[in-house]
């Protein structure tokens, strides 16, 4: 009981840290990492919810798996976009230095 409460609170703290990071960080990679930390926070709360005494509820695990897939897809998409922007900036600055 206390253990999963501890995990839940830690998860929510992680969520908060991530949220702060997304808002405060200037660099896109930092923002992305912060978002992933938020995600991990949510997953921790979910996993803590799965424990009912000695019995483990499988449903939150399935949800965490789905969540991980979504997080990977989202992160990949953001990284691709960031990379595209970066390359675009590099080529333009090489072609026409300003």
């Amino acid at each position: 009981m206390t253990q999963d409460l501890l995990y839940s609170i830690a998860g929510i703290v992680l969520f908060g840290i991530g949220l702060f990071g997304v808002i405060a960080a200037a660099h896109i990679i930092r923002k992305l990492i912060a978002i992933n930390i938020m995600g991990i926070g949510v997953f921790m709360v979910l996993l803590a919810t799965a424990r009912h005494g000695t019995i483990t509820d499988p449903l939150p695990h399935a949800m965490v798996l789905t969540g991980i897939v979504v997080a990977v897809a989202g992160t990949a998409l953001c990284l691709w976009l960031a990379l595209q922007i970066h390359q675009l900036d590099n080529t333009t600055s090489k072609d026409q230095p300003q």
Partner: peptide, 12 residues
């Protein structure tokens, strides 16, 4: 990219 970040933030 901004839309993606906001979208992920909202979903989380």
């Amino acid at each position: 990219l901004r839309y993606a970040l906001v979208g992920l933030l909202g979903s989380l």
